[in-house]
Design a protein around this nucleic acid. Sequence first.
DNA 1: ATGACTGCAAAATATTTGCATATTC
DNA 2: GAATATGCAAATATTTTGCAGTCAT
Lengths: 149, 149
Amino acid sequence: MITNRKQRPISAEQQLLAHHIKPTFQRLKVLEFLSKSCIHPTVDMIYRELVATIPTMSKTTVYNTLKSFVDKGIVSSLMITGTEARFEYVRQSHHHFICEKCNSIMDIVIACPHAVKRSVGGHTIKEQHGYFKGICADCAKKEAVNEAV
Amino acid sequence: MITNRKQRPISAEQQLLAHHIKPTFQRLKVLEFLSKSCIHPTVDMIYRELVATIPTMSKTTVYNTLKSFVDKGIVSSLMITGTEARFEYVRQSHHHFICEKCNSIMDIVIACPHAVKRSVGGHTIKEQHGYFKGICADCAKKEAVNEAV
DNA sequence: ATGACTGCAAAATATTTGCATATTC
DNA sequence: GAATATGCAAATATTTTGCAGTCAT
């Protein structure tokens, strides 16, 4: 769901207007998809999803669109799983967990004392990112089952 | 400097042997360069540095070598500045600061309550990563000077 | 009509793979 | 001499760029 600063639900169109981005058809579709998704999709995932219903959609447009969203702070870009960027609609500040087995990315909401810092070591902070890598609960369970056999 | 678990200085060769990696000439050079470097170099930076004195060095070998180092936990791979992986010799656990202007990466040593966690949300943690993005002190200073002109 | 947006194609960049050669034990 | 490591070349993957056509004021 997309909300404004007061946590009131607003449309994708209003969200783009609020950030001075012209709400074109393609941009709305990208934003709507991201706001519904919890899989932190790659450019390719977004493209494949949208081209299914919008045959003229191009990857360049997905790249362009994501770049403008990231610039405006509506979407954040995660470089945590190898060489492919992943994207998420910006909501509450949180950390991530990346599973080495299944490569899924999960949101981890935990208190972080650095989340409110404005600067560190004399450097001005604009963004904070925290992530964990390991084995997710699902994969750990599957492994346990396999070993029992 | 390379140290063992008791913080005693050891040679690159001993470090590789301790991790069951055959200490070949190329691997030693990569490890020595990383252990001396504080710039979190890319594959290309490592390659260019080494090929200057070892004309037969290939990028494939740098990739292979880094992969084995990361697998053994001697080196860690950072995906935080766009599409190019950066590498650092593993020492004390710490966070990073990435400057949006000059793209330099700095180590940030701060207390983090999550650094000792073994699991989060039921998922088993193997690695923790934290980083900040913003404007470094140097670039902020330069900007201030430019504005004053 | 102007300026912004889209999308194809090509270029640029980054990484991986196949395989032949070289090296080491 | 068997096993492993190296390095060239090609393939693949990801992102960016140039440009021509399209769309919306």
